[in-house]
Design a protein around this nucleic acid. Structure first.
Lengths: 317, 317
DNA sequence: GCTTGCACCTAAAACGTTTTAGCTTTTCCG
DNA sequence: CGGAAAAGCTAAAACGTTTTAGGTGCAAGC
């Protein structure tokens, strides 16, 4: 019903009310696609960008990507172009069910992240016919931006070993993504070759601090010795802090801790968390550049970008 | 170009490549609105829901709202309905510039939050012709869900006073939203009437822990006495922790701290943060219920819901 | 009684895409 | 070389909405 334009169309209040009542009675729900099609100015192309992430994953990196995408979009808006940017979520492992992905009727370009193996299989099987950048997974048919989990794990081990730690522990969630698994493996390999002994693997039920604390508490409680910890996620590191303090140990004197820097406030942990992990700044920059390059056809073949890790030494190791 | 259906249409590879080249050369960008209009099954109504927040604001509450909206949407999907849910961001104070809001060509229903006064003025002036729920602001022409900042501030003061604190401080950002301003005022009023003296107001440049730490450090450094602190935002509380510890004081022995519980990990702060603030669980539930009620026309007149504060006593006060 | 202006109604066009059907051309096979 | 199948081309219809244009009826003003 005339998106709110009854005034300039000089409809009488009675008619407006009559229409409104009919709308209510019929339970009418307008079709936004039709409205947009009709309403838009034929001169300007409307471009829809999306950042696709799973419900389960944290939004720290995603929101940084969104902000950067919007910044680029704002810079290019005007002169026949006009962008909408949004975050959409899928149930982990069920990306294929997301409406409008396959028939390209929802986005002109997307950044996809936090996928599970099922999602990766889906993506690998069908090349989506628009601009796609995958963050954190290697898929041959798409442009990907990846951290280097092997190097991350290795450098985390080095930091702890250089401090003199000899009894290492790696704290991981039960469901490993490709990246976290590789980080943990590389950490163990590096530790084994340099100290001669295999680090203990402590497995938490999930990603939350509570789950991390529970897992580590059980490990420490069993009397195992531990003087250096690598947590593959900052949330887990935060839980580990609590378990360590509860056990009466000091960070970093008794147990040094290294995290990955995927938490907004890692430098306000107590003590501030030393991090070896993907360089978020660079990753975001790279992802967004590639997305726009793809849309402008400046690039046609998919590329794979490896972003070297960033190391931030703070007080925890 | 035929959303990836060249195989079943039996186009020769040569033609496909020719078309692809033409597409590239022309810089063609498909119109998703047109595609959707054409592609969708006439039997099923597609409903588009959005959560609108400002770029500057944290996503903690927003992501909880999204998850809850999606849960309701999933439960109602099927039998002629089909939902898409997304987060869209506007530049704080410039909500009016967001494309498709005024002409209702983007969403069938929205939750709006983290608005600034300019945005509120815009909303108050034009009644958007679809389902709208405003979170955290009082606007007569929309359904609103609000916390009770007055009560929050008052109870925060009570907690500190009951502990025996007499030299109170309230830590706020420079740009106050309606809620944070009311919280701080109520805190001061309650403190004044119960202790007889006015709390000190410490103003941080912004919302980040760093800014909070800087502001409080300056205050403590100036030798002012302080034994109880209320931070109107958890981010600020986190910064305050650092400043307090740097000054060699203990929490809560020397300075007790109360936050608001808007941070995901407030119970993993060291010591865990006592919070008096909006009850996120209830707020999210209420917002989403109202959104769906509006869309189903179960409710027609806007309502205003006040959500009483939740108090979580932890170790910091 | 005639004009004027207002409120309302109706029909048709337009937005950009995909699908369908029908027709023409090319290719393949014996 | 004839015929069938494959591939290509073209035109038209459809998706749901808003806008435009044109028309009808009614009241007010001369």
């Amino acid at each position: 019903m005339l998106a709110n334009r009854h005034e300039e169309r000089r409809l009488s209040p009675a008619t407006v009310e009559r229409i409104r009542k009919a709308v209510r009675d019929l339970g009418y729900m307008p079709n936004v696609a039709a409205r947009r099609l009709r309403a838009h100015d034929p001169e300007v192309h409307h471009i829809e960008l999306g950042i696709l992430t799973s419900f389960e994953a944290p939004l720290f990196l995603v929101s940084r990507v969104l902000r950067q995408v919007q910044r680029m979009a704002d810079a290019r808006t005007g002169s026949g172009r006009d962008f909408s940017v949004s975050i959409a979520m899928f149930h982990a492992g069920r990306l294929r069910e997301m409406a409008g992905l396959l028939n390209a009727s929802r986005f002109n370009g997307v950044v996809i992240t936090n996928t599970l193996p099922d999602d990766d299989a889906f993506l690998a099987a069908t090349t989506l016919p628009y601009a796609v950048v995958v963050l954190g997974r290697r898929l041959a048919n798409y442009s990907c931006v990846l951290d280097t989990p092997g190097e991350i794990g290795r450098r985390a081990a080095e930091i702890l070993i250089k401090r003199g730690c000899r009894h290492l522990v790696v704290l991981t969630p039960a469901l490993l993504t490709q990246s976290t698994a590789e980080r943990a493996d590389a950490f163990c390999t590096a530790a084994r070759t340099q100290t001669g002994s295999e680090p203990a693997r402590v497995v938490a039920a999930g990603f939350t601090p509570t789950q991390g604390a529970d897992a580590l508490r059980a490990h420490l409680g069993a009397g195992r010795c531990c003087d250096g910890l690598y947590a593959v996620t900052d949330g887990l590191a935060l839980g580990a802090y609590q378990a360590i303090k509860d056990a009466g140990r000091k960070i970093p004197k008794d147990i040094a801790v290294v995290g990955v820097g995927d938490h907004e406030h890692a430098d306000f942990f107590d003590p501030p968390l030393t991090c070896v992990g993907p360089s978020n700044e660079t990753i975001v920059e790279e992802v967004v550049t590639q997305l726009f390059d793809l849309m402008n056809r400046r690039r046609v073949k998919p590329v794979e970008t490896l972003v070297p890790p960033s190391v931030v030494m703070r007080a925890s190791a």
